[in-house]
Nucleic acid binder design. Structure first.
Length: 723
DNA sequence: GCAAGGTC
């Protein structure tokens, strides 16, 4: 029989062709197979139905999401597995009476959405191997080839990818293109520990079509929104300027860009307002001590002057309270990726992307557990003592671990954080001795080890002192200090050690002489400048993107020229501002984090049978078509604006202050807004401290915290005359 | 070439 016919037959019926089944035993097995196939079909309606992998006969192909997972599954299922390699890619085989279990893996997504059509609107796409679509995904070719080879002889397939929506899609597409979904099962596990895996493989179900459909839908929605809007933007620029430039928009990147742009606008339009602080120093034990006014600062000069006068009249302050209290500092939980990225940025100034890259390398070297996790919890099944003993073999940690084992008396119970992750635990060191690491790699590894150790250590304590003072007229002041009581976990993770500063002991009722009492003028502060890690933390907070993609998407915004960095601080560029102007007007949906919420709601509806993928995609298609029609009507205008921001053309009428196009009064949109802001701010400034307009202008001109666009306006006499 | 999502 020619191979193709056999393949067709297998696809249709499963198992091997009838004539090849000879022995009675084999015939029985064949019947069993047929029976379990019936069960799969019925399992689509009855998801509670379960089968053990050990009840299957013939060749069973188990597909993991990544090589590491495949290895763990092999270990968990049998102590007598065989490790094989094909073109360098490992796979495992287990023989057990009548069954041949083959465990192989994908490497994340092996397929992606693709179209060969140009232009927009575009809604024709299909799944294609990633190595064909994407030059940087060449490594996926070998994985596909091996899975293809193994699929040919498979009687059954088990999708053993991570138990989440993407895992369901990854496994499904492999089985769909290489095997047969009707002879496929799903295994569901939430950690890769042997005990859990063993149990999970005794509870196979049919394919989880609801999850698969939800996942496919997410891919399609992201594709049609992202590709269509990106193409529309690029086309507008090309039509106006003749230049081909890569522009893009997407469900995650665009709200992230908007967040930075909003922040940029707020900072650039910031006008500092005066604040008045009664600045008081006292003398105690010959030491000069600076006191803080209880409510920080005052808005008006008059009130502040009144307080100063009252203090000076008294000449002393009365101590109303002196307290010393011990604050308990709990150890921090082991890292999830975001926490690691934050600490690496705080301590070493690493970008989130750099930290992630290093963590991924450490993971591939088997030095740490899976880093793309949101979990702050360590699994109770982990052999903590074993890991510690191995870590003790690394020079720099030997004495640290001796101390920890002594302090804990060998009782190793880590603190657990609140955040969890369905597929992976918090990041921990495996204990394997590092080979040659670069100094940056050591820094990340060291953070992970120390944070892991700290999770087992004792609480630390902080002794906080506070003294409160009052004038005769009832104005209150205070001063505080702190020192470390017990070092506890801070010994292991010393990066969190608080600054120590002591104050003398005061006695209630005591009169303390005033050394100086002056009025100090300060100004309100602009919002802090953004950094990459702050952007990433914001993405986490509003729940867009994933552990694997957030840092990457931030870097993408830089590559597109939407953002730029100076000394670690992030700014939106003119192009970034322009993209957000255009998208807010013509595709407002994609600029909001609500789009992710909407996708999630639709995906949930699909998972619970309340919606179908096709109708959800169709609805999005209609929305996008309509928006694109609107866009096309003003395409020239948009192309004009973006081409100016890209520096491809100069505007017909330029802003008096910058190179952007005029909006009103000879100013661009942003400088016009600055003009309006200056008008408003003068009224408030005058309320706080009576002043002339000229004085106000010369003050904000000198202040460094004054926003860029404001400074540009007040620095331009011609424009200033308009006020 | 364009998204977001996996992982090498």
């Amino acid at each position: 029989m020619p191979a193709k016919t056999i393949l067709d037959y297998l696809k249709k019926h499963g198992g091997r062709p009838q004539e090849q089944i000879k022995s009675v035993k084999e015939k029985e097995e064949h019947r069993e197979k047929q029976a379990s196939r019936e069960k799969i079909v019925s399992s689509r309606r009855k998801p509670e139905w379960k089968i053990k992998i050990w009840d299957l006969r013939g060749n069973i192909l188990v597909i993991a999401e990544k090589p590491k997972a495949a290895s763990k599954i092999a270990y968990a299922l049998s102590s007598r597995f065989m490790r094989n390699r094909w073109k360098g890619i490992p796979y495992y085989t287990i023989r057990s009476n009548g069954a041949n279990i083959i465990i192989a893996s994908a490497a994340g997504h092996l397929y992606g959405l693709y179209t060969d059509k140009r232009g927009y609107p575009i809604f024709q796409y299909e799944w294609k191997p990633l190595y064909i679509i994407d030059q940087t995904a060449k490594h996926t070719k070998k994985f596909i080839e091996l899975l293809e080879k193994l699929s040919r002889n498979a009687d059954y397939y088990v999708n053993a990818c991570d138990y989440d929506i993407e895992g369901s899609v990854i496994g499904y597409l492999i089985i769909k293109f290489m095997g047969d979904p009707d002879r496929a099962y799903r295994v569901k596990y939430s950690s890769l520990t042997p005990a859990e895996l063993k149990q999970a493989f005794r509870e196979l179900t049919g394919l989880d079509y609801e999850m698969i459909e939800a996942g496919l839908c997410r891919h399609e929605l992201d594709w049609i929104w992202g590709i269509n809007i990106s193409r529309a933007l690029m086309d507008a620029v090309r039509k106006t300027s003749g230049k081909r430039t890569i522009l893009s928009a997407g469900r995650v990147q665009t709200p992230t860009l908007k967040h930075v742009v909003d922040h940029e606008i707020e900072r650039n339009l910031f006008i500092p307002l005066p604040l008045f602080i009664p600045d008081v120093t006292i003398i105690k034990n010959g030491e000069k001590i600076h006191l803080e006014y209880i409510s920080g600062s005052l808005e008006t000069r008059r009130k502040a002057e009144e307080i100063i006068k009252s203090i000076k009249k008294d000449g002393y302050l009365t101590v109303t309270e002196y307290t010393e209290k011990t604050i308990c500092l709990n150890p921090p939980p082991a890292f999830n990726l975001g926490d690691l990225q934050e600490e690496a940025a705080r301590i070493y100034g690493f970008s989130p992307y750099k930290t992630q890259k290093i963590a991924e390398k450490l993971y591939l070297d088997a030095l740490i557990s899976y880093p793309r996790t949101n979990s702050q919890k360590l699994p109770p099944t982990l052999n903590y003592r074993g890991i510690m003993e191995k870590l003790a073999g690394i020079d720099r940690y030997g004495s640290l671990i001796d101390r920890l084992l002594r302090e804990t008396r060998g009782i190793l119970q880590p603190v657990q954080g609140k955040k969890d992750d369905p597929a992976h635990p918090a990041i921990y060191p495996t204990g394997l001795k590092p080979g040659k690491l670069s100094s940056d790699e050591w820094k990340i590894y060291d953070l992970i080890v120390r944070r892991f150790l700290a999770a087992f250590a004792e609480k630390a304590s902080l002794i906080q002192q506070q003294a409160r003072f009052m004038t005769r007229e009832g104005y209150e002041f205070r001063v505080s200090g702190q020192r470390i009581g017990k070092l506890g976990w801070l010994y292991y993770y010393y990066f969190s050690k608080p600054k120590e500063k002591s104050i003398p002991v005061f006695i209630k009722g005591e009169h303390v002489p005033i050394k100086t009492a002056r009025l100090r003028r300060t100004y309100t502060r602009p919002p802090e400048r953004l950094t990459k890690i702050k952007i990433l933390r914001w993405m986490e907070r509003v729940e867009i993107g994933t552990e694997a993609t957030r840092a990457r998407i931030i870097e993408l915004l830089f590559r597109r020229g939407y953002l730029e960095a100076k000394g670690g601080k992030v700014n939106a560029t003119d192009l970034g501002l322009g993209i957000i102007e255009v998208l807010t007007k013509y595709f407002p949906q994609i600029t909001s984090v609500e789009m992710t919420r909407y996708f999630e709601a639709k995906m949930e509806a699909i998972r619970y049978g309340r919606a179908e993928r096709e109708e959800v995609v169709e609805e999005a298609r209609q929305t996008i078509v309509k928006l694109l029609q609107e866009f096309d009507r003003v395409k020239d205008k948009i192309g004009y604006l973006l081409s100016i921001r890209l520096g491809y053309i100069s505007p017909h009428r330029k802003c008096l202050v910058c190179s952007r196009e005029e909006y009103r009064l000879g100013l661009c949109y942003y400088h016009y807004m600055a003009l309006e802001k200056i008008r408003e701010a003068y009224n408030e400034w005058n309320r706080r401290e009576e002043t002339t307009f000229e004085k106000f202008i010369s003050s904000i001109k000198k202040l460094r915290s004054t926003g860029k666009w404001i400074t540009e306006i007040v620095g331009n006499d011609e424009v200033l005359a308009k006020l």
